[in-house]
């Protein structure tokens, strides 16, 4: 029997799951859309992972969760470790690229930069206040231009003369884009300009004041877009590495972290369980804390969101 370690990264747009062994080899992996329902997405991921390891004798002994729904899913799966995505990404990437110095990560809703020297994280930054230049911006603009976001990269590469599109703020970028389209720019030039503006926006906002040294690894959903990769390489004037498993780095990282945790008995039967979440507005003061209760088969397993003891939901 092989011991397996499950890592799940539940992002705003996509959910990623991997099972690794002691030597960090990926035994099974799955990537699908969250579609606004993290619990359902995780159940689907688990089902597919279970299918992939059916023939091998693998027993999952530890579970880690990361991503924006890490707490909810961690509670449901009774995870041994719940880690923020910044640390998880750094650990995952370091396991494959021990020499990496800069990690560029652009996901669906957020983007971050992680600086690593001598194998330790020395600095990081995450986008603040607005989701400018992230995956969701690209996909909404793809819809406007009537192309699939998956084709964006290939179309962008055909352009010789990218349109100049404002990079500071996506609201301005959008009006720039409409304007450029109306005055007769080619579609591929606009798309290439858009990819360039995502890269510029990232470098101006998230990576502002940070020293970007080689080797640079670009990951997250947007790294699948070769147009943006190309834009980064042109602006930074260096090579930017992308990994075919780049989107699994967060899940891989948290699975590696789970190796060090205490072993638990995990069963895929959890797919069959019924999980319901309810939100309550605490009535005790005008703050009206939103309390989230997680029920497993009708039984409360955890609740959070209250700022004081008065809002505590008693376990039944």
């Amino acid at each position: 029997m092989t011991k397996g370690y499950l890592g799940i990264d539940i992002g705003s747009i996509s959910t990623k799951g991997v099972i690794i062994d002691r030597e960090n080899h990926i035994l099974a992996s799955c990537y699908l859309w969250t579609e606004g329902n993290p619990i359902r997405a995780v159940k689907k991921v688990l089902k597919r992972l279970q299918k992939q390891i059916e023939k091998e004798d693998v027993q999952v002994v530890s579970v880690g969760t990361t991503g924006s729904a890490r707490k909810l899913i961690g509670t449901i799966l009774k995870a041994s470790i719940i880690k923020n995505e910044i640390t998880a990404h750094a650990i995952g990437t370091l396991s494959k690229y021990p020499n990496v110095k800069t990690i560029i990560e652009i996901g669906g809703q957020d983007s971050k930069i992680i600086l690593i020297r001598d194998g330790i994280v020395i600095d990081y930054a995450m986008n603040t206040l607005c989701a400018a230049g992230t995956g969701s911006f690209l996909s909404s603009q793809a819809k406007r231009l009537g192309v699939e976001v998956e084709d964006f990269g290939n179309i962008a590469l055909t352009s010789n003369n990218p349109a100049l599109i404002a990079a500071r703020c996506t609201v301005f970028a959008e009006s720039d884009l409409v304007h450029k389209a109306q005055i007769g720019y080619q579609r591929n030039d606009i798309i290439a300009g858009l990819c360039r503006s995502v890269a510029l926006n990232y470098l101006n906002n998230v990576a502002k004041g940070k020293k970007i040294l080689e080797p640079i690894i670009f990951q997250g959903g947007v790294s699948k877009n070769i147009g943006v990769v190309d834009a980064f390489e042109k602006i930074l004037n260096t090579k930017v590495i992308t990994d075919e498993n780049g989107h699994f780095m967060g899940a891989l990282g948290v699975a590696i972290l789970a190796q060090k945790e205490k072993e638990i008995s995990f069963s895929f039967d959890v797919i069959q369980d019924d999980f319901q979440t309810t939100s309550i507005h605490c009535p005790h003061c005008p703050n009206h804390c939103e309390i989230i209760c997680v029920n497993e088969n009708g039984k409360l397993i955890d609740s959070w969101g209250n700022r004081c003891e008065r809002g505590k939901v008693p376990a039944n």
Binding site: N84, I86, T87, V121, D123, T128, L129
Partner: peptide, 26 residues
């Protein structure tokens, strides 16, 4: 940290946790 009305505390917690990890690793 730059606070405004709409800043959700989930984002703040994520950054704080990562900061804590960073300090510990260092």
């Amino acid at each position: 940290f730059s606070y405004d009305v709409e800043t959700s505390d989930e984002g703040i917690k994520t950054r704080l946790e990562a900061f804590y990890d960073l300090l510990n690793i260092r």
